[in-house]
């Protein structure tokens, strides 16, 4: 991918898109997913991955349509199950670079069990969750990350339930790399995804994204731009946070690398077992 690295970001996007075949895409104007797709592509280029060895796996939802547009091995699976599909691919062929693109409904509601067990298993996957706090594809229903009191088509009076903090969840479940990014900080996001790809083990990146069509409209955001400003005003970089007072941090989302630690990786342990058995050591 030497050539790709010499290209400017926009040219680089075209290098990796199936743009002759599959466009226009289906996302609404002002949606955050396109920006995240750009960040993922630049991260892949930055990691110098051979595109034939990259598998992008997704579940169901707006975010999960991303594999259609990128020129990798792509797998658009069933609702909530992309991590399980990805686990099968990775274990069968550990040399493949498997990246899961999912949404808050996909990975935290119907797929929540697969998420925590993949963290526990520590299989070398990169999971990027496009977290827009709502179900977009089905028309704006509440999701497990809809903030308390916010409005959705199934929470007209404001959502009663507490929202999941997906970074706390995955860190608690044992993910070796956990980061949070935001569409507003596209270049930081690119770096976080690249770090996640390079990390050996289960890496999770929660990306604050915007759904202007549903979440924005229901919750009194005037425009996608206003939603992006909200991201800017309600996030604090993990490096700045320690210097801030508790009241300044109240209600803020921390971005950056939130967990980075090492633990034996599943496919490597399995390959060791195979080698041990072959050598009669077990």
């Amino acid at each position: 991918m030497e050539k790709a690295r010499e290209l400017n970001p926009s040219e680089l996007m075209h290098e990796y898109l199936r743009h002759k075949k599959r466009f226009p895409h289906l996302w609404c104007s002002g949606c955050g997913i396109g920006t995240i797709m750009g960040a993922i592509i630049r991260a892949i280029a930055d990691c110098e991955l051979d595109r034939d060895s990259v598998v992008m796996v997704s579940g169901i939802g707006c975010s999960s349509r991303m594999p259609i547009y990128v020129d990798f091995n792509t797998l658009h699976t069933t609702h909530g199950r992309p991590i399980a599909f990805a686990t099968g691919i990775k274990l069968a062929r550990p040399e493949l670079e498997v990246i899961v693109v999912t949404g808050d409904g996909d990975v935290a509601a119907i797929g929540g069990n697969h998420l925590i067990h993949a963290c526990r298993r520590n299989i070398n996957l990169t999971v990027v969750c496009i977290n827009n706090n709502i179900y977009g594809m089905t028309g704006g229903q509440a999701s497990p990350t809809t903030p308390q009191g916010k409005v959705a088509t199934t929470a007209r009076y404001g959502d009663f339930e507490r929202a999941f903090d997906l970074c706390d969840l995955t860190a608690g479940a044992g993910a070796v790399f956990v980061a949070r990014g935001a569409v507003y900080y596209a270049r930081q996001l690119e770096k976080l995804v690249a770090q996640a790809i390079r990390k050996k083990g289960f890496a999770f990146v929660d990306v604050i994204s915007q759904c202007p069509t549903y979440y924005g409209r229901f919750n009194k955001f005037k425009s996608p731009v206003e939603m992006l400003y909200w991201q800017r005003d309600n996030t604090v970089n993990v490096k700045a946070a320690p210097k801030m007072k508790p009241e300044e941090l109240e209600g803020k989302l921390i971005t950056g690398v939130l967990a980075d630690r090492d633990y034996p990786e599943f496919t490597e342990l399995y390959d060791e077992l195979i080698a041990d058995l072959a050598a009669g050591r077990k």
């Binding site: 598998v55 796996v57 797998l75 699976t77 069933t78 199950r81 399980a84 599909f85 990805a86 686990t87 099968g88 691919i89 990775k90 274990l91 069968a92 062929r93 493949l96 069990n113 697969h114 067990h117």
Partner: peptide, 12 residues
């Protein structure tokens, strides 16, 4: 998850 992993492995 089991059958999902099986299908993933088969595609690999």
């Amino acid at each position: 998850g089991s059958l999902a992993a099986v299908i993933g492995a088969s595609l690999a």
